[in-house]
Every structure is written in structure tokens, then in C-alpha cells.
């Protein structure tokens, strides 16, 4: 379910280096439960968006091919220290989570 997401954003010159760690099982839907032999239903993040000071910088689509507890790193030119980064994700069951951080 919706557990905390961690964001770290730092300025390196004129580029903001943003690192996001999401908490999610990222089940592909093809794995079987070792005990029952039943397929574990697919449950993974399908969409991630990130914005800085309200302007969208990243719009990502994902499949179950992203590792458990997804890590995402990206770089954005333009922002200043103190600007606000907001990251949202939605998964295939409609669960969603949002987190924000200040660029340091």
C-alpha cells in the first residue's frame, strides 16, 4: 500500500540532481507463490510524474519490469536551491502516493 517515498534533490552546478526511492512490491503477475503454487496477481506502478515548482519535468510509464522498490534518478536544468520537487505515482490497482522535497 501507500508507504513513504523518499526524495533527495541536490544542486550540482545549474543542474538539479533528483533521486527518488519508492516503496512498492512491483509484482509482475507471472510469479508464483512458493507455498501455494498460485500466481501472485500483478501489482506494479504504472505511472510516475515529477514536477518542480509546479512545472512537469518527468512523466514516466512503467511495467512490472522495474525492480521492487523502484529507484529513479533524473537531472533537471534550471531550478534553484529551495525549489520544491513533487513526485506522484499510481499503480495498476489505482493506489497512489505523493511526496515532496526541497532542493538543497
Amino acid at each position: 500500500m501507500a508507504e513513504p517515498m523518499r526524495i533527495r534533490a541536490t544542486m550540482a552546478g545549474d543542474v538539479a540532481d533528483v533521486k527518488v526511492l519508492m516503496n512498492h512490491t512491483m509484482e509482475t503477475g507471472v510469479r508464483k507463490d512458493a507455498k501455494t503454487g498460485q500466481l501472485i496477481p500483478a501489482h506494479y506502478i504504472t505511472d510516475v510524474t515529477a514536477s518542480i515548482n509546479g512545472a512537469k519535468v518527468l512523466d514516466a510509464g512503467m511495467s512490472g519490469g522495474i525492480s521492487k522498490n523502484p529507484y529513479l534518478g533524473f537531472k533537471v536544468k534550471g531550478p534553484k536551491a529551495g525549489d520544491k520537487v513533487v513526485v506522484n505515482w499510481v499503480d495498476n490497482k489505482g493506489d497512489k502516493n505523493t511526496a515532496e522535497a526541497t532542493i538543497g
Binding site: 512523466d59 519490469g65 534518478g73 537531472k75
Partner: peptide, 28 residues
């Protein structure tokens, strides 16, 4: 894209408003 995965397309990232041509992640 991981070519031999059951679902080859792993993720796609749209970059706007100054986002650089850089993505770092972890895949299966």
C-alpha cells in the same frame, strides 16, 4: 527495453521543462 523479457518495454520517461537526457533506475 530489455529485449528478452516477457514484457520487453520496461519503462519510458518523458522529459520536459529542462529535464536533461539522463535516467537512472533499476530493472528486472
Amino acid at each position: 527495453v530489455a529485449e528478452k523479457n516477457a514484457t520487453p518495454l520496461v519503462a519510458d520517461f518523458d522529459l520536459t521543462n529542462g529535464a536533461q537526457g539522463f535516467i537512472s533506475t533499476r530493472i528486472k
